[in-house]
Amino acid sequence: MSASVSAAVPDPIDGALIRAVQQGLPLVPRPYAVIAGGLGISETEVMARLARLIARGAIKRFGVVVRHRELGYRASAMVVWALPENRVAEIGRRIARLPFVTLSYRRLPRPPVWPYNLFTMIHGRDRTSVLDQLEQIKERLDLADTGCAVLFSARCFKQRGARYDATWHPEATNPCHPIELSDLKSASGNNLACAF
């Protein structure tokens, strides 16, 4: 999907434009005109280039970037599923469209120790609400009998920020969630919501 993006030689003006808007638009009535002035191009060209970057997928979305933790979304779990190979894509796409799900990837399983081939990230206000979301997902997608495991993040040992000009991984977009160790113990029954 992203092959065409990475293969394309980055346009230097697009690169400068991305750097200019990366930290956010100026909060003034005509923000694109301000950006345009800094780059020596027209306001119309700024908007047209942003529209193109969005259409091409180099910009995944453009808008208000919310800090979920500040709004009370403090828990997230990596939920992994062991699906028959011929169902992974269908289920992966359907899970991806559900609210509170921010990642959905097919990965190579390593049976027997690791039978899971679909990785999803589910968010919620706390661990209980994450597990509630999971129950809803299982019900809606008829996954009650599918093997899954719930992995809450406990401690973050390293997280390098996501920058356009650095090599990084999509999963780095998940915020670090340092959690008290005492909290960890109480939630360590991580398979409780799953079929195995």
């Binding site: 991305i18 808008g63 991984h169």
Partner: peptide, 30 residues
């Protein structure tokens, strides 16, 4: 504009801008 400024100051909004697709340079794994 004033509300976005306030939400930004309060930490609820990080910015108004792009979320970029990572460029897959080289190889990666989990």
């Amino acid at each position: 504009i004033a509300r976005i400024e306030r939400l930004t100051a309060a930490g609820a909004v990080s910015r108004v801008g792009p979320v970029l697709r990572p460029r897959h340079v080289g190889a990666s794994t989990l």
